[in-house]
Design a binder for these strands. Structure first.
Lengths: 202, 202
DNA sequence: TTAAGAATGTTGACAATGTTAACATATTTA
DNA sequence: TAAATATGTTAACATTGTCAACATTCTTAA
């Protein structure tokens, strides 16, 4: 027998739509408030349809987190590649990174804080020699600073890790409310950058 | 009628035991795997007994997180107060802090990453002028460095925030597996400290 | 001391949730 | 076009947090 509405029996792009809608729901309500029923209701399908594309809710969430990482990574990369001045590019990257966290606190908290991501082996991994993640480009920018004699010649991966740690730490503390003097974000940006630069520049 | 076992009808210190056992369960299995039934089974009480002490599971978890913070804070404080050399104390604090995160990754992730803690107003808060949290003592140590002309005279709270951010960032990246060259932890400690110190010392 | 009341613990029930099995419909392929 | 595959639906289930009604122990005031 024909369905009452066979046109929409198949969603068409449910796999992607689940990711996108999950991203939106995480940002507006937090990960804890995502249920398969709420999620699929927004997409006009039934709860179980999810299982045609992801083996479990956890695996869906992993994919959502991966998409969140790529969103952040895209921002970082374009900033790191924009302009000539090495130090300026590092400074801008830090600002963009922290802004991303401030603008998407729930998403940021989820992609970095989720228990499922404990043994994440993918991008941003120091062990991978090649690749074009934001972290790899950060390392490349530092190496450019080495060649131009702007940055102290030490292990660029360690230097990148130090920079990333500072920026990541600030982002976390800000969105978790441990620092909540919004007025002083600029001052914090300046001092942290100055500290990093004093530490690494020639 | 008498209970079959009236000696243990009342647990005696269930309120505290719930916190302690939750801390252990978080560290061994992660927050996601704590259920009231599993938790209370370990303590020999029924699920609902929890509600005599905490209004909801969320509120219990908040108390557990608070206890986790205090555990970390205790470590930090004692390290910051040990010895004379200001820079050495800062260095040791960083090492102890990062070690805590490495030794208690699930706990660390939970206390800092939980959605419930978004608008945390308690300790470690920059806005509180007085108090004796680890953060306050960190500020005091920096001020000591100012007086002794060891550390650049800038806003000590901002300086403390920069230091904390770096250490917190390293801790997070380490336990989340974004940095997993265990061999290089020492090198990372050294470089991050050198960077911080070059940035702030006179 | 003892009776009342407070504190603490138990049991049974409920709605919400993730998951699966059995079935239905659409799309692709041979 | 028929078979195979992909995608979606419905019904049912176990688990979970929560609450109401009841039981036991502890505390306190007379």
């Amino acid at each position: 027998m024909k369905s009452k509405n066979h046109i929409s029996y198949h969603h068409g792009s449910l796999k992607d739509a689940l990711i996108q809608t999950s991203l939106e729901m995480i940002e507006s309500d937090g990960l804890k408030n995502i249920t398969l029923r709420k999620l699929t209701k927004k997409l006009g399908t039934s709860r179980s349809a999810v299982y045609r594309h992801y083996d479990s809710k956890d695996i869906l969430i992993k994919a959502v987190i991966q998409a969140g990482f790529e969103k952040l990574d895209t921002n970082i990369k374009s900033t790191l590649l924009e302009g000539d001045d090495v130090l300026k590019r590092l400074y801008n990257m830090g600002k963009v990174y922290i802004s991303f966290a401030i603008d998407n606190p729930n998403l940021y908290r989820t992609i970095f804080g989720h228990e499922l991501m404990k043994e994440r082996e993918e991008s941003c991994d120091i062990n991978d020699a090649d690749g074009d993640t934001g972290f790899h480009i950060l390392v490349a920018v530092i190496e450019e600073g080495h060649e131009k004699n702007i940055i102290k010649k030490e292990d660029p991966i360690l230097q990148a890790t130090v920079i990333w740690s500072m920026i990541h730490g600030i982002s976390n503390l800000l969105i978790d409310g441990h620092i909540h003097i919004q007025d002083n974000i600029d001052a914090l940006n300046e001092l942290s950058f100055k500290t990093l630069i004093n530490g690494i520049k020639n």
